[in-house]
Write a protein that binds this DNA or RNA. Structure first.
Lengths: 301, 301
DNA sequence: GACTGGCCATTAGGTTTCCTTACAAGGATA
DNA sequence: TATCCTTGTAAGGAAACCTAATGGCCAGTC
């Protein structure tokens, strides 16, 4: 027979195992830690096996618990999807998207209007965070990740490649300080991007054959690509920008490419989401829209 | 937030939707129909959407219910798998296998000893039924199906092909009534197999160029291949047998092939099971053993 | 056409489950 | 050592859940 333990106990286990903490699980489920403790005692005695090792240092899963946890997660994920499917049609639906702040401000947000227009019934929550979201713990439906692919246990679609290109404000180059060749960079302020996937100016200059001893590291530094681009727009110097993030400012002529070409990178933008979410209509709508934005069917000249 | 309706209500919905009957769902969950009715009312009001159409003729799912049901099934399946994983190690485990009766008696059961020897901790329940088992309703872990593949929503592995061959008891051919060529069949009793995937004697005789007007349909008929083979073993006549089912009796010299060759069929034996079951150690053990039995690594001469 | 059986809906009432409160014990940190 | 944080336990109360009983509806059947 389909014999399941008390379902609330399973849900408590899933939360406790995920957080490795009864207290945080209790928070998530809006009950007291004692309730979780009792549920775990019930579940463990129902099973006849301990699920947690209560070390003084903290909670760890036993082998039985560790093996089962992913299946519980997956199971509750499916139930959640089923529930949301039942609800769709009754009121507006919502989708939570996790992206890096730079990608949000420079790529996603400027396009969201188009999505809203196409799907007025779907609300988008943009969850912009520097940390890579963990689908197991966060309440996120889909994410865009910048990296080299290979995301386990997730559906992943390659959205677009990224390449690197020097950019600056149109007004930056003057008769006194031109920007006609890489060597001219030595007489300009360089803006540095410390985020992942961007080569340093030092590397770029060396590859361009410019002797930059003691010069290539000077200038303002940012840990977010969007700040780098905005600094460049503001005329603060020349930046090595991610093309996909800078393209809007380039098209609007707020930025220009003084010389050089795009340098391709190994990194790309990936659209990822858990398998269990794939069936939600709002996820379908968003992902297909996102892919069509990333691969425009008719590239404009 | 991960907001789920009362879990027992979801489980009741899953059962009621699967059976399309509150009463049968109540049976399955060992409660009264009234309890199911209440749970459904609670769930529907929680969602704000009806899930069933209560027609006088019977229960049907609304669109919302129909769309969500498979996800609920899948979800509870995963929870069940997780639960069984937690339990493994505590006491013997069990696996339920659904097969056709003929396959059970002529192929699977004779080999089960070997499995038991290899995995003494796993009990096998053989569920032999002429009807194709529905994983959605039956409590079955894996099944072997005879057909042409294309089983939806299931993991399916091709076990082995099937071919057809004439067989009879070694003593059947005598000096008076020899069995040296197809034409000799006209002076023998023909045993007919009405089960799927077996050509009729009429078709076989015609293909062999034997004029069999009014002869090809005489003789005993069985709806199960194992009965056909046993009738042949008992010397009741010549049968068109499924090779995979007859091979043991051929090797034991209880049957012989008077003439002719195997005729390949479009049908094969497929090992199928729901994705959610794939992680269970007993399922892994059984499926890999079954595959190794079906494709012997070192065919013996 | 009334009878019967099967099905679902509804209500009231009781039982079980579940949660909270409160306290205890055990590190970790300062 | 004192405080904070954790988990574990017990007792009481709240909430969820189930049963039992009843009624309506339809489909057979006599």
């Amino acid at each position: 027979m389909r014999k399941l333990p008390p379902l609330n106990a399973l849900r408590a286990f899933e939360a406790a195992g995920r957080h490795l903490s009864f207290s945080r699980a209790a928070d998530e489920l809006a009950v007291t830690p004692g309730a979780i403790s009792q549920q775990m005692r019930i579940l463990e005695s129902w099973l006849g096996t301990p699920l947690f090792k209560r070390d003084p240092k903290g909670l760890t899963l036993t082998e039985a618990g560790a093996v089962a946890l992913p299946h519980m997660r997956e199971g509750f994920d499916r139930l959640l999807t089923g529930t949301r499917l039942m609800q769709s049609g009754t009121g507006p639906s919502r989708i939570t998207v996790s992206v890096a702040p730079s990608f949000a401000s420079k790529w996603l947000v400027p396009r969201l209007d188009a999505f809203q227009e196409k799907h007025p019934d779907v609300d988008i929550y943009v969850h912009a965070d520097m940390d890579v979201v963990d689908f197991a713990t966060a309440d996120v439906d889909v994410a865009v990740r910048f990296g080299q692919g290979g995301y386990e246990d997730l559906v992943s679609d390659r959205l677009m490649s990224e390449s690197i290109i020097p950019v600056c404000a149109p007004s930056l180059a003057t008769a006194d300080t031109p920007l006609d060749e890489p060597g001219d960079l030595l007489r300009h302020t360089l803006i540095h991007d410390d985020s992942d996937g961007v080569p340093t100016w030092l590397m770029w200059l060396r590859a361009a054959g410019v002797d930059c001893e003691g010069v290539g590291t000077r200038g303002p530094r940012f840990n977010q690509s969007s700040l780098v681009i905005e600094a460049a727009v503001a005329g603060k110097g020349v930046a090595l920008a991610k093309y996909a993030l800078a393209v809007a400012d380039l098209e609007a002529a707020r930025l220009v490419v003084p010389f050089g070409h795009e340098t391709p990178t190994d990194f790309a933008y990936w659209l990822v989401y858990p398998e269990a979410k794939a069936a939600l209509p709002e996820v379908k709508a968003f992902t297909s829209w996102l892919k069509s934005e990333a691969h425009p069917p008719q590239p404009q000249g």
